[in-house]
Design a protein around this nucleic acid. Structure first.
Lengths: 145, 145
DNA sequence: TACGATTATTTATTGCACGATATAAATTCC
DNA sequence: GGAATTTATATCGTGCAATAAATAATCGTA
């Protein structure tokens, strides 16, 4: 049989299942923060840079605003962010961390270490692999655009 | 600032966004087959080996039966598979490809090539990266178990 | 001022993923 | 042989992601 259509040879299957595996490691950690995985990513991005617009966040997270809007509303309901329409340009909504959202960072600071530990690799190796996967992503994104 | 909590250094973010990027490349291809991405993976597994049980499929795809059952029902509604209770062990449900499901393979045979092309890497490099990501998955899965 | 472009929201749909629970057969133990 | 245990699957309910399409508001510009 040609191994053309064999699951174990699919890069996509590897990425897909790795993503699930990561999610399973994250789940219990994020549960303690009351965040889902994409919500966590949004928070990380806001901890990096507060006051981003919905569109700006979407660009960083590779998500459409129609995906982000309900997600951000949940974060607002949870009390982690505020959504404020910009004064300068009233089309734009700016997302700002609340006090509680800022505090949450302290509880999240240990998570990357847990993941790294679970991956069973040292930091250097992990960084290299991470860069490779990013390169794959960029190539794929370029092919679609 | 410590780059501890920096999105661009997260292996998880790389995998997550790469998974999305793959999905975007797949989407138009799979639309012509009338399949979603996880449905496609299930079909690939069945093309490899017809007549698998729900549990067996779940083990290969790393999915719970509670996730697979509705997915397989949709494939059944689409006319690609039949779900038959096993004679020997009536707890077990066996999934069998329909004629149409078997024929679908011909239309799918070209997809992996498209993905490989979109990734912008040669086969050897892709295989190497694939193996690395699988290794990451295995390490993560082991850490949860 | 009118028009096109930008930005976000709303609405609706589809499907994934999982936990909890129920069920049912097979196996094992007494 | 019958009861308890194990194993496998299905069902139900919840939550959320992701997208498409339509709408609305605003901005910049011709």
């Amino acid at each position: 049989m040609q191994d053309q259509l064999k699951l174990d040879n699919f890069i996509c299957f590897a990425v897909y299942t790795a993503s699930h595996a990561l999610n399973r490691v994250y789940k219990p950690l994020l549960d303690t923060l009351g965040l889902t995985y994409p919500q966590y990513l949004a928070m990380v991005s806001l901890w990096e840079q507060d006051g981003q617009t919905v569109g700006g966040l979407g660009e960083k997270l590779f998500l459409e605003s129609s995906t982000l809007t309900p997600l951000l509303k949940r974060l607002e309901t949870a009390g982690y962010v505020r959504r404020e329409r910009s004064r300068e340009d009233e089309r734009v909504v700016v997302i700002r961390l609340s006090e509680e959202g800022i505090r949450l960072k302290e509880k999240a600071i240990g998570i990357p270490g847990c993941i790294a530990a679970a991956s069973g690799r040292d930091a250097v190796d992990l960084t290299r692999l991470q860069a490779e996967i990013v390169a794959l992503r960029e190539a794929l994104n370029k092919s679609v655009a």
